[in-house]
Design a protein around this nucleic acid. Structure first.
Lengths: 195, 195
DNA sequence: TCGGTTGTCTAGCAGTGCTAGAATCGAGTC
DNA sequence: GACTCGATTCTAGCACTGCTAGACAACCGA
């Protein structure tokens, strides 16, 4: 069975290569530039190989999104815990929000795959993939504490999330001047969070 | 000169027909279904006619967006003034926010053209088209009053806008359960606005 | 070394946005 | 009323997209 195992390993590695290459291409030149032909050429295989791993382009976007969700969740948790308990909830929430906007700015293509493109992923449902639930969970952990009395932590997190997403999206699309990002972020935390 | 005038009139009318048809098609079947061929067929002209009015598909999307911006601004002003001064600022802000989310829900394709697609429009700049500035102005008129002391009204409006946009986008993409829209809206107004 | 399966590639489909050049229409003139 | 000539519209086609059928090659087990 060792041969089969080796093949499986190689196949898995090629799949990772596809996802990584798609991501790289998207970050470099935007998702429009990620065509099946270019992607196939980059991994030095022919197009049909892509379709032996994924149903189609949408599923490749979805794979990049999932990878991104895992990283996003880690970044959020890391930021929140770096602002230690001694710094108080206010610092933690600010760090969390900043981490979100940072991630969106530094990984625009991944952010698009997650929230602006159709990667065929289910959200807010039972069959939502674990990394997505986990990213939301990372928000919930910190934000649940500052929801305020009588406010459902989940709903509060959804609202905070929406505000962050709006800021990230509009800023990246050039609809909000980036100089004031920090001011808006502070204002968001001050107003929304109950400290 | 009457012949030229008539031609100009007919041309303008055909341009309106193109924009209206594109919008209709987009609302019915999504922007993906708005291809130059289908659009040309719908207006009963050949494809190149579209290019005698617009540089390309992106400019058609932009035209739909501008039309939408005008309507959005009107809807916002109407909602804000319907919640009369007697009702207080809180009611006005709530009505404004609700109007925004309503518009997004009722005109998803137009909302996409405005904020999620590339219509080639400039934002937050000098050459931003008037309808876009005006829609932001409609927000500013009501929100400027509840920014709170020491907070720049423009920045506050940007933040509020971003939150609304995030709620609209995530809700429409199925990322937020729609049942709680009203709860999130109330929470948003309660927290962000200084009454 | 061979047979058969598994994997990969070539070639092609229908669709996209966009455009060059042919064809047609119609306004103004004789 | 017929005709010319410029403006307008259409036909046909380009290069590209995502995706797939069927030919081909490589490799494993005997």
């Amino acid at each position: 069975m060792s041969v089969q195992e080796r093949k499986q390993r190689e196949r898995a590695q090629r799949e990772r290569l596809i996802v990584a290459t798609a991501r790289e291409l998207a970050e470099d030149q935007g998702w429009d530039a990620v065509t099946t032909r270019r992607l196939a050429e980059s991994i030095e295989y022919s197009q049909p190989v892509l379709y032996s791993h994924f149903r189609g382009k949408r599923e490749i976007i979805g794979a990049v999104a999932l990878e991104g969700a895992t990283e996003l969740a880690a970044a959020l948790r890391s930021a929140a815990s770096a602002a230690s308990t001694a710094d108080g909830p206010r610092a933690r929430v600010t760090a969390l929000a900043r981490a979100w906007l940072d991630f969106a700015e530094r990984n625009p293509a991944v952010y698009d795959a997650l929230f602006n493109l159709d990667g065929g992923l289910a959200f807010a449902q039972e069959d939502t993939p674990a990394p997505l639930k986990d990213a939301f969970g990372a928000l919930l952990e910190t934000l649940g504490e500052v929801a305020g009395d009588g406010v459902h932590p989940g709903v509060f997190t959804e609202l905070f999330w929406a505000a962050l997403h709006g800021l990230a999206t509009l800023t990246r699309a050039g609809r909000l001047p980036p100089e004031l990002t920090e001011v808006r972020l502070e204002l968001l935390v001050d107003r929304l969070a109950v400290l």
